[in-house]
Amino acid sequence: MKSTGPGKRSTEEQGKTWSLCWQAVGDRNFLSSPVLAALIRSRLIGAHQRSGRVLIDFVVLPTEIHVIAKIGSDDTVSGIARAFGNVVSRWVRQAQLARGPVFVAAFSAQPINAVEDRKREMRMLAWRPVIKGVCATPTHHSTGALRVALGLTTAKGFDARPMLKHFGDAVPAARNALRQWISIRPSAEDWRAWELTRGLELARGNLGPHKFMAKVADGGAAKLIAAAGGYGMEAALELLGAWVGARVQPATTLDLHKRSDAVAARARALVACVAVEHRLCSAASVARYFGRAKATLSEQMTVCRSRPVDRLIVGTPLRRILEEAAALRSVQDGNRRGATARPAKR
């Protein structure tokens, strides 16, 4: 997850489109009253009316605010965050008559410059109110850009054309294409990866020096954890262990927790190399997961990195790892179902 604090400016953030997110602390509620909701929406729109800023999409939820915005090369993400977040914090405190922080963090931000990536982000924002239990279908949520883009309502000051341009030049055709696009509900795995990269959920595990640990996961780490079926790092390491085992010894299943031979040692080192490569966790965490000495694992990792065939395994593209891991899990699930359905021998 990329985040930019006040006063900081990166060359990466100039002239790009960004997905921004604010998350509420505790029982803070951005929609606690119609007046507060209207103020927040108005401020969100107003913060993007400066030259060079384009508000493409947004949705305001009780505990989350999401924005897709383009900023000019002479502007910064933190500029938008300040123009919006500071004022909203004051309004929420006044509305709820409670002092203290309003946001979990200043904001989170991810660049989304490819058109298809922006369209996928729009789909996630359309379905987020449904996932959070605010409404039954995407078009029912009133505090967002979707209903405006579809011509179902208006929002003073918001121009829906930048959003519709992603789906066509003619408004009627673009609206139809947008409806078709958001008709596909994101999968549970999509949601897990999306939440992890935005810090809405933390990657969790008992892999730290003091056992339990929680951290923000981004990029490949988020995808690995999401593919494993939850928010736990142990499950992601289990997924990698199965995948590496199949690459190292396809004929039989490797128990990397119990086996102590050279094949298992190599496989554990490969798991650690891949985990570190995709920033899932440290080598020390992998050593704790397998119940091995970190120094020994590090030595084995060094050997793997010097071996050409192992470098190919470690360098496998993440998409291929996930595809092969999913296929392997499908085969294993099929074998288990077959074994369960097979009648016992007499």
Score class of each variant (00 low, 15 high):
Asn335Thr: 02
Arg41Ile: 03
Arg82Asn: 08
Ala193Pro: 03
Ala83Asp: 12
Ala109Phe: 03
Arg204Ala: 14
Thr17Ala: 08
Leu297Lys: 08
Val35Lys: 04
Pro250Tyr: 03
Leu270Pro: 13
Cys304Tyr: 10
Arg279Cys: 10
Ala160Cys: 10
Leu196Tyr: 07
Glu13Thr: 12
Asp190Trp: 06
Ala126Asn: 07
Asn206Met: 06
Glu116Asn: 09
Ala69Thr: 14
Gly205Phe: 05
Phe212Arg: 15
Arg50Thr: 06
Trp191Ser: 05
Gly5Cys: 00
Ile321Leu: 06
Ser187Gly: 11
Gly15His: 09
Ala226Ser: 08
Glu121Trp: 02
Arg28Phe: 05
Gly46Cys: 04
Thr143Asp: 15
His140Met: 15
Val216Phe: 05
His48Asn: 10
Asp159Trp: 10
Thr302Lys: 15
Ala217Cys: 12
Ser108Pro: 05
Leu254His: 07
Arg128Thr: 12
Ala38Phe: 08
Arg319Tyr: 03
Ala251Leu: 05
Lys132Tyr: 09
Ile45Phe: 06
Asp255His: 13
Ala83Thr: 02
Thr143Phe: 14
Lys215Asp: 02
Cys281Met: 05
Lys165Asp: 15
Ser51Cys: 11
Gly15Asp: 12
Arg336Cys: 06
Ala327Arg: 00
Ile56Leu: 05
Met213Pro: 00
Ala69Tyr: 02
Trp91Ile: 01
Arg337Trp: 02
Leu207Tyr: 00
Gly219Ala: 11
Leu270Glu: 13
Lys70Glu: 13
Asp169Glu: 15
Gly205Ala: 07
Leu280Tyr: 06
Arg53Ser: 08
Leu39Arg: 14
Arg147Cys: 07
Leu39Trp: 02
Val102Arg: 06
Gly79Ala: 02
Thr137Lys: 13
Asn176Cys: 07
Ala188Val: 10
Ala174Tyr: 06
Ser282Ala: 14
Ser187Glu: 10
Ala177Gly: 02
Ala227Trp: 00
Arg336Tyr: 04
Thr253Asn: 00
Arg120Phe: 03
Ser78Gly: 14
Leu200Asn: 11
Lys294Gln: 14
Gly144Gln: 03
Ala272Ser: 15
Asp169Lys: 14
Arg175His: 07
Glu121Ile: 10
Ala284Asn: 04
Leu297Pro: 12
Arg118Ala: 13
Glu195Asn: 09
Thr252Leu: 13
Arg266Ala: 00
Arg319His: 03
Arg43Cys: 08
Ala262Val: 15
Gln249Trp: 14
Ser330Thr: 14
